[in-house]
Each structure stands twice: as structure tokens, then as C-alpha cells.
């Protein structure tokens, strides 16, 4: 993409929700005093009888959503990442993921959060959820999506409204660069190869996909051909695509704005080490907490945690050297 374009994930989520709600009268939306921020209030304006703001009571939010879902509704519950997996893992596990009516797995609740990861910025380390991917992917029946841009958010909102079962979708707070064309197709459990390459693979999720693409550009100037994969579907993860990447490119670097422990990088390492072991390097938060950074300082915050295109590029060079 030439001139960089930005999109707002929450705006696209909101628009998609209203459209989904128009098509499917079974869709209900719940919020917890962040409905202006998440822009889910727009759904409420359009469908007041299907919109519930339960106040600053996230455990209640999750469990009311579970009850609606048990009675046949498709429930979207949204607030900030730090207040859902970060606060309500019990309710998410026991009220949504565990209860399995008949042959179904879990209840039909979609937990869609914004403010995932370090890019929350100014609110500080207390609000920068860097553990949610690890928490959510450890829960059976839960699927975990980390969209890379606002286009993905819109498409995934439609997809999860149509697929039965619990989903966790993690959006970023700030406006994010657009990496996908409108025509891009998405499928749960399938990664997207954004750029082909043969020397190494960079697999990323969320807003770090753009950083990965930048790294690939840098490496190209040095004659290194990098394959870049958007793994927006962290669970289920695209085992086939990753195994192929391991076999064909011989090394993998992962990237995420999340703790490297238990997060996206871990899940790639799990898959690859079992199917086609190759050297792996995980870029991400190195088991630390974040801190405040205003919007224009977020690159500095990322740099402090090593989440930069330069660091990815260096890591690629390093893992390539370790190939057997």
C-alpha cells in the first residue's frame, strides 16, 4: 500500500454491529459503561430493546450475556480488554465457555474488547492488558481473534455473528493502519499470507502485522525475502499454514503486543515445534508491565519493549543463522 491509510476499529465494529442487528433480530448487545467509547451505543439507539448497559459491573455483564445466549440470543458483550479477561475469567469460563447445551460447545456469546495491549497508551500499565490472549486461549471452547485492522474487525464481526459459540475478539484503542483490501476474505482458523517470501517467516497478529510488513520491507532492501502472515485467528490457529511456512522458509519470527509467555508467539511455537521444528524468535512484551505513553509516544513505548520493525528484522537475521 502506498500512502498509509488509517481506520478506527471501534467505529467499524459499531457499524458492523448495527448492520448485523438489522439482519438478525436475535442479536443483542451489552455494555458496561463504556458503550460510548466502544461505540456500541449506536446499536442501542437503533435497537433499544436489544441493548443493555449494566453499568460498571463486568462480571454481571458477562453472566447476563450468558443468560441471554442460553435463551437463544446471539450476545455481543463489549468493554475494555483489561475488564473482561482481566477481571472476569471465572464468569467467562463458567458461564460462557463451559456450559454446552446438547452437541454445542459453549454459549453463543461474543466478547469483543477494545484497548488490548500496550497501544492503550496514556491510561498506563494498569490498563494495558498484555495477558488476555494467554488467558483466553487456555479456556476450552473459546476462540480468540486478534484483527490487524479496521477492515478485519468489520468482516470478523459478521463472521462471528454467524458462527455459533464463544469468541474473544481483541481490538486496539487507537486508529490503526489498514493492511487489508476490502476484498480480502477471512476464515476462522486460517491465516493470511500478506507477502510471500522464502528466507524466513514473520507471523504476527493485531496491529503488529503492520510492523511485520515494515520489517519485511527493510529486509527486502538487504536482499532477504520474508514471508509475512497475518494470524488474526490465534485460536484456532492455522497449523497447516505455519507448518508450511516452517518447511519452506526454515525459520519464524512472531510478533504481538502481548506478553510472549502464553500469547500468540507461544501458540506458534507450540504448533511448529510439534509439526516441523525450526528456529523461532518471539517478539512481544518480555514478561513485564507497560506504562503510560501519549499517542505520539506510543512508538517509544513499543521500542522499549522491543516491538519494532528493526527488532523484527534483526531477529529474522538471527534465526536464519540458526537454521540447521
Amino acid at each position: 500500500m502506498s500512502a498509509e491509510q488509517f481506520g478506527d476499529m471501534r467505529t467499524e465494529y459499531s457499524k458492523a454491529l448495527v448492520a448485523v442487528g438489522e439482519e438478525n433480530p436475535n442479536v443483542v448487545v451489552l455494555g458496561a459503561d463504556t458503550t460510548d467509547s466502544l461505540k456500541t451505543a449506536n446499536f442501542g439507539k437503533k435497537f433499544p430493546e436489544r441493548f443493555f448497559n449494566v453499568g460498571i459491573a463486568e462480571a454481571n455483564l458477562v453472566s447476563v450475556a450468558a443468560g441471554l445466549a442460553y435463551s437463544g440470543k446471539t450476545a455481543f458483550a463489549s468493554t475494555y480488554a483489561i475488564f473482561l479477561p482481566g477481571r472476569c475469567v471465572d464468569q467467562i469460563r463458567n458461564a460462557i465457555a463451559y456450559p454446552s447445551p446438547g452437541d454445542k460447545k459453549g454459549l453463543n456469546v461474543k466478547l469483543v474488547v477494545s484497548h488490548g495491549g500496550l497501544s492503550v497508551g496514556a491510561d498506563g500499565g494498569s490498563h494495558q492488558q498484555v495477558e488476555d490472549i494467554a488467558i483466553m486461549r487456555a479456556i476450552p471452547n473459546m476462540r480468540v481473534l486478534v484483527p490487524s485492522d479496521s477492515t478485519t474487525v468489520s468482516k470478523l464481526t459478521w463472521i462471528i455473528s454467524q458462527q455459533y459459540g464463544p469468541f474473544y475478539m481483541r481490538m486496539a484503542r487507537s486508529k490503526t493502519p489498514i493492511v487489508h483490501n476490502e476484498s480480502q476474505e477471512f476464515q476462522i482458523g486460517k491465516g493470511i499470507v500478506l507477502q510471500d517470501g522464502s528466507d524466513c517467516t514473520v507471523a504476527a497478529c493485531g496491529i503488529t502485522v503492520k510492523i511485520a510488513l515494515d520489517a519485511a520491507d527493510l529486509l527486502k532492501q538487504e536482499g532477504i525475502s520474508c514471508r509475512v502472515i497475518d494470524c488474526f485467528s490465534v485460536k484456532p490457529i492455522d497449523k497447516e499454514l505455519l507448518e508450511k511456512a516452517a518447511r519452506e522458509t526454515g525459520s519464524i519470527v512472531t510478533c504481538e503486543e502481548h506478553n510472549v509467555m502464553g500469547g500468540f508467539g507461544s501458540s506458534v511455537a507450540e504448533v511448529v515445534s510439534e509439526s516441523y521444528p525450526v528456529p523461532i524468535r518471539r517478539i512481544g512484551v518480555q514478561d513485564k508491565f507497560g506504562e503510560s505513553a501519549r499517542d505520539n509516544e506510543i512508538p517509544q513505548l513499543f521500542e522499549k519493549h522491543g516491538i519494532t520493525s528493526i527488532n523484527i528484522a534483526n531477529s529474522v537475521k538471527e534465526v536464519r543463522g540458526k537454521k540447521p
Binding site: 443483542v28 430493546e49 436489544r50 443493555f52 462480571a59 454481571n60 458477562v62 453472566s63 447476563v64 450475556a65 450468558a66 443468560g67 441471554l68 445466549a69 442460553y70 435463551s71 437463544g72 440470543k73 450476545a75 471465572d90 464468569q91 463458567n94 458461564a95 463451559y98 456450559p99
Partner: peptide, 24 residues
Amino acid sequence: EFCGGSLGIGLSYSIGNALAARID
């Protein structure tokens, strides 16, 4: 109708069910 055991959840869950019945 409910996977109970972890305490404190059932009333919220009931409200969800009651709201669904109201919508329908």
C-alpha cells in the same frame, strides 16, 4: 438450565434469560 458451582453468577444469568423471554 445452568452450570452452577462458581457462586454469584446465577442471578445475572437469570436476568439474561428473563430479558430474552421479554424480547421474545
